Simulated scan of single mutants.
Amino acid sequence: MTNGIVRAIKRNLISQLFIASTILTSGAIINVIQVLLHILVKPVNKRLFHRLMYYVSWTWLAQCVFIADFWSNTELIIYCKKEVFDVLGKEHHFTLMNHCYEIDWLIGWLVLEKFGCLGNARGFIKNVIKYIPICGWFFGFAEHIFLQRSFEKDKAVIEERLDDILQYPDNSWTVVTAEGTRFTKEKHEASQKFASERNMVPLKHHLIPRGKGFITCVPILKKYKNLSVLNLQLAFDKSAKVEPTLVNLLRGEKVVAHVYIERISIDNVEPTQDYLNKMYQEKDEIQDSFLKFGNFFEGLKQKPIDGIRMKPRLCVAVNTLLWFALNLSFMLYYATKMILAGRFVFLLSISGGVIALFYIMMQNIIRHSKVNKGSQYGKK
């Protein structure tokens, strides 16, 4: 009975809109705080600016993590050697992650949160995103690396921003999708044709990686000793009843994310296209093993590693519930104020408009997260 009520609440559109409205309204508040940090703190004390931006970033991204961790009870299982697990989050990480699922970005944040690096997570993002209100502004003020996808323009940006990130007082976790765009059937066919024409090894589950950005990054990474490159591979069971989509998570549907992590010493990383191609050939074999056998090791004839089930952190729930309480208090205060003033029609009009606005914004986020709505980049 209780489970049925909880399930009904999670599937209710009003509940989903309340979560979306809290994330968006808190995002607007956080945008203001970010601007103030840039104006008042960064010119005076850059180290303090980075430390404060860590907590500001965490409190917003943790609300998204809440959707996976607590709302949908998503399971995160990490597969890596013990010596790798013990250093995750304790050094700067430069991570190459596959990009083929609708919620791979959210699972990435889930991994980062578990190892205390969510507030210092940075990524390579297409430049147009930073102009999107709230979400795009957040990433812009948090100083993610925005690229115009013109190497002549982006090279200097990569060199300056990556060097700055690696000087953060706390360990950072920079995530890169070297394929340049999300995997789709159409882009995969173009990628295989590209590989065939150039006598390259075609990939089954990835696009041919684009190496100019990676080659630019490696010499900068090699300047720092407390740093490693991570090969992070995300997979979902293809026979699972629940598809890994944002809609399903908002409906409270549980998914199980399997994440393979390999640590590579920066001393062993080469700034070449051939090295990157070989790394993606390895990622392809890892993914192929999981899709065929349900694990990352059997297809590679490697000794299996037991998965580590990562537990949700209570601080994520507390943070989100506080934002929920603030949002609900704000709504109740103004609703009560208008009711006491006898402005019922005005209240209904405003409420309808606000609900419609948040619904449109929520649907827009869902639409842009879908695989078939990926960037056109890489199709040619």
Rank of each mutant, 00 (worst) to 15 (best):
L76E: 02
I5K: 06
L227S: 08
K373W: 07
H50C: 12
M97V: 15
H205N: 12
L96S: 11
P304W: 08
A62R: 10
E270D: 13
H144K: 13
V256Y: 04
F49H: 13
A142Y: 08
R122K: 15
V316T: 15
K254S: 14
Q167A: 11
S329R: 03
M279P: 06
R210H: 03
L48R: 00
N319K: 04
H50P: 00
H188L: 12
F236N: 00
C100S: 09
I67R: 10
V128C: 02
K46Q: 12
Q192C: 05
R47G: 06
S375H: 11
K373N: 15
A190P: 02
T216L: 07
R198L: 09
F66Y: 15
I14E: 05
C315R: 11
S375D: 15
R51P: 02
I107E: 14
D288A: 14
V371K: 13
V176C: 14
C117L: 09
R263N: 11
S228C: 07
L230S: 12
V247A: 12
Q363D: 03
Q148T: 14
A142N: 11
P304E: 06
C135S: 12
A341I: 05
E160F: 09
G294L: 08
F70P: 11
L112I: 10
V111F: 10
F70A: 05
Y224M: 02
H258F: 01
P209V: 01
G252C: 01
G252A: 08
S369N: 13
C217L: 12
G211A: 09
H258G: 00
R182P: 08
I9N: 01
L61A: 13
G353P: 02
V255K: 06
L232P: 03
V316F: 05
H92L: 11
D267A: 13
Y334V: 01
W323V: 06
L276V: 00
Q192F: 03
D69P: 01
S172Y: 05
S21M: 05
M279V: 03
P43Q: 15
W58D: 06
Q287T: 15
F66V: 11
K90W: 11
Y55R: 08
F214V: 01
L232R: 05
A240D: 04
F358A: 00
K187E: 02
H93S: 14
A240L: 05
Y131F: 13
F296R: 05
E282F: 09
Q363V: 02
I365Y: 07
A28N: 05
K370Y: 03
G213M: 08
D284P: 03
S375K: 08
E270S: 02
F290H: 04
R51V: 07
Y377T: 10
Y333N: 06
E262Y: 02
L246D: 07
Y333K: 05
M331V: 00
E179H: 04
